[in-house]
Design a protein around this nucleic acid. Structure first.
Length: 508
RNA sequence: GAAUCCUUAGCUCAGUUGGCAGAGCACAACACUUUUAAUGUUGGGGUCCUGGGUUCGAGCCCCAGAGGAUUCACCA
């Protein structure tokens, strides 16, 4: 590799400035701590003309976002922790002696937009009324060598030269965060959502745990895994598509409430609601059933929305979502009947397939009864479920890990939570009968042999643990990314992930 | 996986019938001590995504490829 770095004109100029700074005896990347003692946010919210004597000797650090030189005095904008504050820089005040280089060279010539600087001074209000830091000392803290996109907003709020290309924004999320500070609010909300969920569970005495990401058998869900290899053991390993089977082992071990918040990995398509790695929350609570779990979900989501938004409603894709329970609870077959007027609950596989033809719903020969019903539900019902809604009581064929329904033949005790037409959560009264569990896995094998690539594989180690007796329990999985989307009014999963998966950049 | 559209300066974008590569911001130089999309004057900056083809001549037309966006399909 003999790659002579080639710089754009603007990069070359910045590197020349860097050399000039060094030649002047200034370290552009100093080691000393800069003694920050204030924030832009508190200055802008707390400064008044009456208490201005409290706002001296203020030390602020941040990124230089604009520079307006007007001869011997200048205005600049510093962005500190996402908040912009104006600076006033006067030549004779930052350079009180005869040597004016600190202003004429360092500030006017060598400092560029994007540089991180520290400033010390006092707060005042300019003639036009803007709260401004009057700079008395200026320190370069880190030189920026690449030109930063400059986004300007006029008095009417019109944005000019927005940094808006999604590809660039996602590949260089750090630049996105600098020049589009509003996107911080989505990620702050994300952090608060997870934190509120965690504190809710912790308050119930449930234990946060970690289970293996590298698994010898990818169980607990139906999806294509990422495969890798362990050198020392010389065995294949899979990145987990779910953690359900390990959390259930902990139930066997006597932990009565366990939950895990973490990444799952599925080797499938990418679109507005799918990223190959995504965050899920899975929780299992012993001696509960899925009815109890529905109540817990309502209570938990209301708690989260209150903690994050200060209310129980959220606007999403043009609708006002109400997270205060109780949510509608509709059995799957009733939901289909409500939308189509047809009861498909008594139909066998052949009748379901014919009904799909009538409705122009695509099917394939490897689809069993469960998948056909799921397909009908997806086509006819899913999009209509705007407000949080529990769909309950699924056919047994679709759900090999859930307990058989206490009263309805052929169904399992399962619910899914739909919000704005998308699945956000999935829960069961967990199957804990090891004999039944083995049979269910064997049914999955039959589906796999028919060509269903998603059918679950049999996990002997998991079955062994269940044979030691697993307490009756209810389990729940929530797609954290989708929940964050709902609560931050983002319609693309890429906007709630700092670093969404992207295709590799083409070699230039 | 399919269809449609897009890819031109650091950023946002124009680019006429195929005939010298453009604007605003940013950058450089000069001026300017309360501006705020600062201003004025001057200037520099380009692998027009990549590779082929047609043509006297291609940013523009044709073919192939890469990447992106949107919609659809697939995916608990």
């Amino acid at each position: 590799m003999n790659t002579e770095p080639s710089y754009s004109e603007q990069e070359a100029i910045r590197r020349q400035s860097l050399e000039s700074i060094r030649a002047a005896g200034i370290n552009p990347y100093p080691a000393e701590m800069f003694p920050v003692n204030a924030s832009a946010k508190e200055i802008l919210s707390s400064f008044t003309d009456e208490n201005k004597e409290q706002w001296t000797q203020i030390c602020l650090a941040g990124r230089l976002m604009s520079k307006r030189v007007q001869g011997k005095a200048s205005f600049a904008v510093l962005m500190q922790d996402g908040v912009r504050i104006q600076l006033y820089v006067n030549r004779d005040e930052i350079c009180p002696g005869d040597d004016k280089e600190g202003y004429n060279s360092l500030f006017k010539k060598w400092l560029d937009i994007g540089d991180i600087i520290g400033v010390k001074g006092y707060v005042f209000r300019t003639m036009v009324g803007e709260i401004t830091l009057h700079v008395q000392e200026l320190t370069l803290l880190s030189k920026c060598l690449r030109p930063l996109p400059i986004v300007k907003t006029d008095a009417d709020g019109n944005v000019y030269d927005a940094f808006s290309d999604p590809e660039l924004r996602h590949r260089m999320r750090y630049v996105d965060l600098i020049v589009n500070p509003d996107i911080r609010s989505t990620f702050i909300a994300r952090s608060k959502i997870v934190s509120a969920m965690r504190s809710y569970f912790d308050a119930q005495g449930w234990l946060e745990v970690e289970t293996p990401i590298l698994q010898p058998i990818h169980g607990g869900a139906a999806a294509r895994p990422f495969k890798t290899h362990h050198q020392a053991l010389d065995v294949p390993l899979y990145l987990r598509i779910a953690n359900e089977l390990f959390l259930k082992r902990l139930l066997v071990g006597g932990l009565e409430g366990v939950y895990e918040i973490g990444k799952m990995f599925r080797n499938e398509g990418m679109d507005k609601t799918h990223n190959p790695e995504f965050t899920s929350m899975e929780i299992y609570v012993a001696y509960k059933d899925y009815d109890w779990m529905m109540g817990m979900v309502e209570d938990c989501l209301a708690h989260i929305t209150k903690a994050v938004l200060g209310r129980t409603t959220a606007e999403y894709a043009g609708n006002i979502l109400e997270f205060q329970g109780p949510y509608a609870r509709i059995p799957l077959f009733e939901a289909i009947q409500q939308q189509t007027g047809i009861d498909v609950s008594g139909m066998d596989e052949e009748q379901l397939r014919n009904q799909c033809k009538v409705w122009n719903i695509p099917t394939s020969p490897d689809m069993g009864k469960g998948k056909l019903i799921d397909q009908i539900f997806g086509e006819k019902v899913e999009k209509t479920l705007i407000q949080p809604t529990f769909i309950t009581d699924y056919p047994i064929e679709m759900t090999p890990l859930a307990k058989k329904h206490r009263s309805k033949e052929g169904l399992v005790e399962r619910f899914e939570l739909f919000i704005s037409g998308k699945e956000v959560a999935n829960a069961y009264s967990e199957l804990n009968d090891p004999i039944d569990q083995r049979e269910r896995f064997e049914d999955q094998l039959k589906l796999a042999n028919r060509g269903d690539a998603d059918a679950m594989s049999l996990d002997e180690e998991f079955l062994k643990s269940m044979e030691f007796a697993m307490p009756p329990a209810s389990g729940l999985g929530i797609g954290i990314d989708r929940l964050v989307m709902m609560l931050t009014n983002q319609t693309s999963i890429q906007e709630v992930l700092f670093f969404p998966q992207m295709r590799p950049e083409s070699a230039k």
